[in-house]
């Protein structure tokens, strides 16, 4: 069983939804981003998404755009991103928290999908979330990922109709990522009722666990979403904490890592408290 499947099974046993955190590899610099990554599980991240910075992040709002720009400016590249995951697996002793890489297809295409998947698997990556690879193009990546036991997490959106969902499910594994708003990351939030209705519908079609993301910013929102879906994804609000920890020259101030992790702890206690309150 993959780390992702094990983690969702465990969450089910615990009777709660999970917290998926997004941070960008190399933001604000390689070492600081490693220190953040290292602290995430203890702060309460159940699954970890690591963004692969791209020069042209078309599906991202200002917060994640800025985060990727900081990382690129600090010299991040694909090898270093994979190196972060490998170092985490080597040094942390944590062999259970799933790590997924999130980003845009061109980086994978340039490396070659087959080589990329092999290198990602060897580094300890569990899944891929590629924003600009809808089912129409997913066959470029899926076979190589499957061969390396890497999950391909597919996205569904409010615009996804019943006709498209089977194709998405055909390529998806690990979990299903529901983009809860029409829009880019971190710009607005869906109503609880809208998310509830969408997740209810998805559950009739999909056996995979469902994570909901885009627009979840606060511990309260994360808590509510985690009672509706199997996990809540928080990204922009976390990378905003990275930004808050920078000085005027863009250098990390002391306490940046702690500031980010403190926010993740707040999100996590919201999520962990939610199910109990509902029970």
């Amino acid at each position: 069983m993959s780390r992702i499947a094990q983690r969702f099974a465990e969450l089910k046993r615990q009777g709660r939804g999970g917290l998926v955190t997004f941070t960008t590899a190399g933001d604000p610099d390689l070492e600081t981003s490693y220190q953040i990554l290292k602290g995430l599980p203890a702060a309460g991240a159940d699954l970890i998404e690591l963004g692969m910075p791209f020069s042209d992040p078309m599906a991202d709002g200002p917060a994640i755009q800025a985060s990727g720009q900081r990382a690129l400016k600090a010299g991040i590249n694909l090898d270093a991103t994979l190196g972060l995951v490998r170092r985490y697996r080597d040094e942390s002793g944590d062999d259970t928290t799933p790590i997924l890489l999130m980003g845009y297809y061109n980086l994978i295409y340039q490396r070659g999908p087959e080589l990329f998947c092999k290198q990602a698997a060897a580094s300890g990556v569990d899944g891929l979330i590629i924003v600009d690879l809808p089912p129409e193009e997913a066959d470029e990546l899926k076979p190589y990922a499957a061969r390396c036991d890497i999950d391909t997490v597919m996205l569904t959106a409010p615009t996804t109709d019943a006709k498209r969902l089977p194709a998405i499910l055909e390529y998806g594994s690990g979990f299903l990522y529901y983009v809860s708003i029409l829009g880019v990351t971190g710009t607005r939030s869906a109503t609880d009722d809208a998310v509830r209705a969408a997740v209810k519908h998805l559950r009739t079609q999909a056996d995979l666990p469902i994570a909901v993301g885009f627009g979840i910013r606060t511990p309260q929102q994360a808590a509510t979403i985690s009672t509706i879906a199997d996990a809540a994804v928080v990204g922009s609000a976390i990378v905003d904490k990275v930004r808050d920890g920078l000085d005027a020259n863009g250098k990390p101030k002391p306490g940046l890592v702690e500031g980010v992790l403190a926010y993740v702890r707040e999100l996590s206690s919201g999520v962990r408290g939610a199910k109990r309150a509902a029970e």
Partner: peptide, 8 residues
């Protein structure tokens, strides 16, 4: 190669 939101 676009986001799922746009595909439909």
């Amino acid at each position: 190669y676009v986001a799922e939101t746009l595909m439909p």
